[in-house]
Nucleic acid binder design. Structure first.
Length: 535
DNA sequence: ATCGTTCGCCAC
DNA sequence: AAACGTGGCGAACGAT
């Protein structure tokens, strides 16, 4: 047990029944559990717990945030490394990242890289105290404290989502696959019927044997029938008149479904009615989550029909519309943009005031400003934005200039961009501009990720209150998270409570991350049996 | 055989 | 039209 200042508030307890001890402490004092790394400790713990912890402090994730903030990006961040830096010992490298099956649980302690003979409890307490001290030294300590709490809460939610899984109907998936590809091939390695037929038709149209998966074979084959193309990318093929092009486009579409999300995929990643990707918290420099396995960042829209709620359950699907431009409006304090962002459809409002009602141009222009686009069509739109929304444009332009000059930028809560991998002197102008586009986008994308993280942490707490508070299967569960979208799987009688919790979480995140702002962060919520119906 | 890179597509 | 940011991943392909 640690006091507010991070020092030990009592002697260490030794417990024989961990689940009972966690449940008892959660009920009595709602502690913030401090541990070396959620991803290594919590997944194994989850199955044994009756009550899920409300809060934690993940030393490894926080170390990462602090090192970047202190412009020491990239130093080892495991507990052992932080401890060694504190004590002036040789700093061990981090173990390579890997999945949970990468190392047996038995050796989990070794992954902290603590020097032999070090008492882990002493190291945890000391590193935690040091991190508290460093948080207080941050540019905005309160924001940094919030970021560390949100990142740690995200780590709890990530492990729980992998544990609970996204409901995935094998029957619905089969129906989709069979409709698109034909019956499942029985022999190993054989193509589904429709793919084989398409491959044959492509060969016929080109008049020779080609592997439709090989651009190197396709380009000369197309040339032989008089079609000169620079690549076999789909946007190139769409402009080609030759019948082989349409067949190849169809082949590519179906082949991708088969190889990336077909029957073999399901056996590996969604074998028992649940899709369980592994989320990598802080896996993207911008603070977005990455995933390992199963391609969870890219479930094709055409397969969403396979995500089906259990009997007497519903999916509450909520997605934050136009999140990034709203973040830009809130961060920059630009009056005009904030007025547009106070409406439900930001782009429409923007179009009304600055683009003669042309919503598409308003959207293109604003996205171009946030991504650093400069080419043709968008150029005049940027000029309009500069004139009408000078404060917003100054924010993104200043972030770009900082990056071009080799500097670092920070998100709203203080997540800090990595330094460029090369010294400014060694960068070409093209490199510098590319890095400027990265830092320009970083401030927006990273701040949007913070809003999403805060929203999810708030929702997780509210959902716990709706359930029995325990770790049984009952009650609403977060089951999916993707950048600006969440899915809650809930018993149908709790749908209304979940919908309210979602709306309250969005508003709480707005207040926590951006304080007083007229900018709205609406969540569009659809309650459905099947993900495909959430549109 | 195994590894790393490139192409190309999917998602936000 | 493809010089606009962040990712994951599978097949082909070239290097070892």
């Amino acid at each position: 047990m640690l006091g507010e200042d991070g020092t030990a508030a009592g002697p260490a307890d030794s417990v024989s029944d961990l689940a009972a001890a966690v449940a008892e402490r959660e009920a009595r004092q709602a502690p913030r559990w401090v541990w070396a790394a959620t991803e290594e400790i919590y997944p194994g713990l989850l199955a044994r717990l009756t009550v899920r912890p409300a809060r934690c402090h993940d030393l490894k994730l926080v170390e990462s945030l602090l090192l970047a903030h202190e412009e020491r990006y990239g130093l080892p961040r495991a507990l052992g490394a932080a401890w060694a830096r504190l004590r002036g010992l040789p700093v061990p490298d981090d173990p390579p990242d890997g999945g949970p099956d990468d190392q047996p649980v038995l050796f989990a302690a070794d992954r902290q890289r603590l020097p032999a003979g070090t008492d882990p409890l002493v190291a945890v307490a000391a590193v935690h105290a040091d991190q508290q001290r460093r948080i207080a030294l941050a540019e905005h300590p309160d924001r940094m404290r919030l970021l560390c709490a949100a990142e740690s809460a995200g780590a709890l939610a990530a492990a729980e989502m992998t544990y609970d899984g996204l409901p995935w109907s094998a029957a619905a998936h089969d129906e989709l696959l069979t409709g698109m590809l034909g019956p499942r091939p029985t022999g190993g390695g054989t193509r589904p019927k429709l793919l084989g037929e398409l491959a044959g038709q492509i060969q016929e149209a080109l008049g020779r044997q080609v592997n439709p998966d090989s651009p190197a074979q396709l380009l000369p084959a197309f040339a032989r029938v008089g079609v000169q193309i620079a690549s076999t990318r789909s946007y190139v093929l769409r402009e080609v008149e030759h019948p082989a092009a349409a067949l190849l486009l169809r082949y590519k579409e179906l082949s991708r479904i088969h190889s990336a999300h077909g029957w073999a995929w399901r056996e590996q990643w969604a074998p028992a009615g649940r899709f369980r990707p592994e989320y990598v918290v802080g896996g993207v420099v911008s603070g977005r989550w990455a995933t390992r396995g199963g391609g969870a960042l890219q479930i094709p829209r055409s397969l969403r029909a396979a995500v089906v709620a259990d009997p007497e359950h519903r999916l509450v699907v909520a997605d934050a519309g136009q999140l990034e431009p709203r973040v830009l409006a809130a961060m920059s304090g630009d009056d005009g943009l904030a007025r547009a962002a106070a409406e439900g459809d930001l782009y429409a409002a923007l179009a009304r005031t600055a683009f003669d009602g042309d919503r598409q141009r308003a959207k293109l222009g604003l996205l171009g400003a946030m991504y650093g686009q400069t080419s043709g069509e968008v150029r005049p739109l940027l000029d309009v934005l500069h004139r009408r929304f000078p404060d917003a444009m100054r924010l993104v332009e200043s972030a770009a200039r900082t990056g071009e000059a080799g500097g670092v930028v920070r998100s709203r809560l203080g997540r800090t961009s990595p330094p460029p991998s090369r010294d400014r002197q060694d960068m070409t102008d093209g490199d510098a501009r590319a890095w400027g586009r990265f830092t320009r986008n970083f401030v927006i994308q990273a701040s949007a990720a913070e809003w999403a993280l805060a929203m999810m942490a708030s929702l997780r707490r509210r959902l716990t209150a709706l359930g029995d508070g325990g770790n049984s299967g009952a009650g609403p569960r977060l089951v999916f998270f993707l950048h600006d979208e969440i899915i809650v799987h809930t018993p149908e009688e709790q749908v209304q409570a979940v919908e309210s919790a979602v709306a309250e979480s969005a508003d709480e995140a707005r207040c926590l991350v951006f304080g007083r702002t007229p900018v709205l962060f609406p969540l569009e919520t659809h309650t459905v049996r099947c993900y495909a119906d959430a549109k």
